[in-house]
Write a protein that binds this DNA or RNA. Structure first.
Length: 294
DNA sequence: TAATAACCTCGCAA
DNA sequence: ATTGCGAGGTTAT
């Protein structure tokens, strides 16, 4: 018998909007059901999250929920002081609007390998397709986990993807990203890229190590750093963010990636990553309303 | 150093 | 239904 764990939000932190947080493009494996509960795979656990009566309900497949709660707090970055952040950056009218639209949107602290792999697959793609491929890789190479009537799979390990090889990953729809993914998998599996030891390392060191991988440029490296490696100053400037920079902040359209990063650091410093995600999601949503995936 | 084409497929719109 | 376009980038030229 699985026992849910209730985490009182008032004791942890501030606003939490699961829908904004889990569907704002920083992760690819969370799904919502008819009741507004979200299920995803975290490590070896199938986890279901829902908000009830000012508390976060945590249900798990394997680890007792009460034991996993501390990890979930870290995973959702509930230790980040969102009201302070909103106060620090809220004088900017564009960020103010994004804060008003998505007050409980939080950056996450995801698993580094899954995050890197997911964003390698994001190159010239779109969120529905990335999600589909990530799920297919998990179903193919991961282990089944079950919570009530929900069955999902753990994410494909670096070892499994390295062994699968480029051809197999092409068969599974990875396209030209297949060799990039196997290359990264091999680097992680052999320990040449010590992904799990990069949290807290200096930005430039991590950037250099990640971009040594084929298929990982500055943007993908920034995503991995921001969403999984605790580098909250990372500023992944994709086409949407760059459009925001030119349309709303009057930066030149042909500004270099490095210059946009320097500009963001000058304006927002260590908060650049949060500013990035709010601007990204606000811009993307205003163009195309959110479709909630099954 | 800066611009341009090529890369695999799939999702989505017409 | 079928077709055609473009997608959260990176690399090679």
């Amino acid at each position: 018998m699985k026992t849910p764990f209730v985490l009182p939000i008032s004791q942890v932190a501030q606003p939490l909007d699961l829908a904004s947080t889990l569907a704002c493009g920083q992760c690819f494996r969370w799904r919502v059901d008819d009741c507004g509960s979200w299920n995803g795979v975290v490590g070896r656990d199938l986890v279901r999250l829902s908000m009830r009566n000012q508390g976060l309900i945590i249900e798990t497949s394997t680890t007792p929920a009460a034991e996993l709660a501390e990890f979930i707090v870290a995973y959702l970055r509930l230790d980040d002081d969102l009201p302070s952040l909103h106060a620090r950056l809220g004088s900017d009218p564009h960020l103010r609007q994004a804060f008003d639209n998505y007050p409980g949107l939080r950056l996450m602290r995801q698993e580094p390998w899954e995050t890197l792999a997911g964003f390698i697959l994001s190159s010239t793609s779109n969120i529905p397709r990335i999600s589909k491929t990530v799920e297919l890789l998990s179903d193919t190479f991961g282990d089944e986990v079950q919570l009530d009537d929900i069955k999902r799979h753990t994410f494909a390990s670096a070892e499994a993807l390295a062994e699968a090889g480029e051809l197999r990953l092409r068969e599974l729809g990875c396209g030209f990203r297949a060799p990039y993914l196997t290359g990264a998998a091999e680097a992680v599996a052999t320990g040449r890229l010590p992904l799990n030891h990069l949290r807290g390392a200096p930005y430039n060191d991590v950037l250099r190590q990640l971009t040594e991988l084929k298929g990982v440029g500055e943007k993908i490296a920034d995503c991995a750093m921001l969403f999984s490696l605790d580098r909250l100053e990372a500023f992944p400037a994709d086409r949407w963010v760059r459009k925001v920079l030119t349309d709303l902040y009057s930066l030149p359209a042909n500004i270099s990636y490095e210059d946009s990063r320097e500009w963001a650091w000058g304006k927002w410093g260590a908060d650049a990553g949060y500013a990035n995600q709010y601007l990204f999601w606000n811009a993307r949503q205003s163009t195309r309303p959110m479709r909630i995936s099954q």
